[in-house]
Amino acid sequence: MANAITVILLFIIGIYCILVSHNLIRVLIGLEILIKAVTLLVIFCGYQTQNTALAQALVITIIVIEVVMMTVAAGVVVGIHRQNNSLDARNIRKLKG
């Protein structure tokens, strides 16, 4: 039970960070916290059903994918900084949405 609450709390921290941050790197850090939360959830679900082996297999894959995604995201952030000389998310208003 405590694990589930931890997952929810980490989730809220991550989402809050993504929504409120003005710095692009901090948005990525918020995403990382979300992924931490969900990793904990997978391990917890595996532990509860005594299916840790499957859960570990999933978590290893998730970690590999997470690293690749973060690397590409870092590349994009560095690119934005080269063009804009700023990492302020408020400058991303050229896009209308």
Partner: peptide
């Protein structure tokens, strides 16, 4: 170019939330 990078970043964030 700046527009491509910015929209790519936007996509990364939303897609990562969807993934989670």
């Amino acid at each position: 170019d700046i527009l491509g990078l910015e929209s790519s970043f936007k996509y990364i964030v939303l897609s990562a939330v969807a993934t989670v």
